[in-house]
Design a protein around this nucleic acid. Structure first.
Lengths: 239, 239
DNA sequence: CGCAGTTTTGATGGACCTCAAAGACCGTGG
DNA sequence: CCACGGTCTTTGAGGTCCATCAAAACTGCG
């Protein structure tokens, strides 16, 4: 049980608007839980006895069809929220992509607390609206972008987010880890893993990116990468 | 200015949890506004001076790329909400698909009211979570379904929603209007209008649907239609 | 009727999927 | 240390679904 005062996501999580009293209440119903990379957190249809904030690591939210086709519908990063007040059954599969630490809240008391304090509810509304925006952004990618643009967009987003973690803008020469396997990227982008691999090879061959080892990506010219995404060079990204 | 007491969406709209006092306050900041089919409501980047509920008709929410590729990211039906408290600029194009009536609230006072009353905020949270679910459902369709399954899914959803309007389950022989042009369907499904047309012709030829005139669709065997969507026959649809 | 917008249908090509095999990486155990 | 298996990745060859280009048919309307 970690202390909220040293929590790395305290300023962005669902509890970020809470005052000291509310944090005390939350403290009483929370517990930490960890998962190794690859482990499932929830299966679609599971009964959920908690809601949670991602403290560290990355989780994926995915839907599967009966024949095995899979579409990732969200990447859960530190401070993102898992679960929905008022809902019992998990609608999607949640899997730990990297080693993962969650700050879980027992669902029932969390819902009661939410009904009593507007701080939790209003922050959750903000976060949900943000997620809706990124889901819609992703719909454009899935429906209208080429394989080439899809990969470039994903890399641009990962680079941007990685820079944001250090409170910077993505710069030329920026390097970041690629936390996803080819298959996970394919499931996120609505492609096959072979196509993902080919497009990455092509970006590498054309000098848009460089690979240091298998997991580290270097972007020598960020504007060049952006120009491959199909988005407006300036705007495009909302979040 | 219509009376809330006779409003057709009073039990589902953002104001559905409001008590009489709150409705009085809302009444003072609201106004009706109508659009003909095809008319734009908002362009991406516009300054928004109102938020609104759809009272009657259908609007589309769409993103466009510079080269003209367009992806619809939402269909706004009666009781759906337009706009986001706390945001100034419209992120998407909103267009009236059919004749459309909105119940608009001046944005600033609406935000103030929302900060004061949890009723509005909690209903909006619910609605936003529902929209997030359908956006994610749509991501699976866009990323992983075939053209064939996409069209079938759209028709199944339209049939289901139409039945829900009369508080029924979709039944064999159910008929409904197709409010979208081929192009609008294509933009929603991430296809070209030619592909949409061909798939509809194929469904018609195989007897899965019948067309009465140009706009009316009859579904002789609803289970048959569902089996063409690629979804679980039973569950699949969340909303 | 003639015209503009929408829809249908046809022919062709290309982007991406599928199937297949080889190569890289990594931990384990002999 | 190297062999070995497992997982992930790359690369290749071929096929298919859907986009593209093009034109005809249909619809509604002045």
């Amino acid at each position: 049980m970690k202390d909220c005062g040293t929590c790395p996501i305290q300023h962005r999580a669902v509890c970020s608007y809470c005052d000291a009293d509310e944090l005390v209440e939350l403290d009483q119903i929370k517990y930490y839980r960890s998962y190794d990379a690859g482990q499932p957190v929830l299966w679609a249809g599971d009964h959920m006895e908690f809601v949670a904030s991602v403290v560290e690591g990355i989780a994926s939210l995915a839907q599967a069809m009966e024949d095995g086709r899979t579409q990732m519908v969200g990447l859960l990063l530190p401070s993102d929220f898992i679960g929905r007040p008022g809902r019992d059954l998990a609608p999607y599969n949640v899997v730990a992509v990297t080693n993962l630490t969650l700050c879980c809240f027992r669902k029932k008391p969390f819902e009661e607390l939410m009904a009593r304090t507007p701080h939790l509810a209003s922050r959750l509304l903000e976060m949900t609206l943000d997620e809706l925006d990124s889901a819609r952004e992703w719909m454009l990618l899935l429906g209208r972008k080429t394989a080439h643009e899809k990969i470039s967009s994903l890399l641009a987003i990962l680079a941007t987010r990685d820079a944001a973690l250090r409170k910077q803008k993505p710069a030329d020469g920026a390097a970041f880890d690629l936390p996803l396997t080819r298959e996970a990227m394919a499931d996120y982008l609505g492609l096959t893993l072979e196509t993902v691999s080919r497009q990455i090879s092509s970006l590498k061959k054309r000098g848009v990116i460089e690979l240091k080892g298998k997991r580290r990506v270097v972007v020598p010219d960020f504007a060049r990468l952006l120009s491959e995404t199909g988005d407006d060079v300036d705007g495009g990204m909302i979040s």
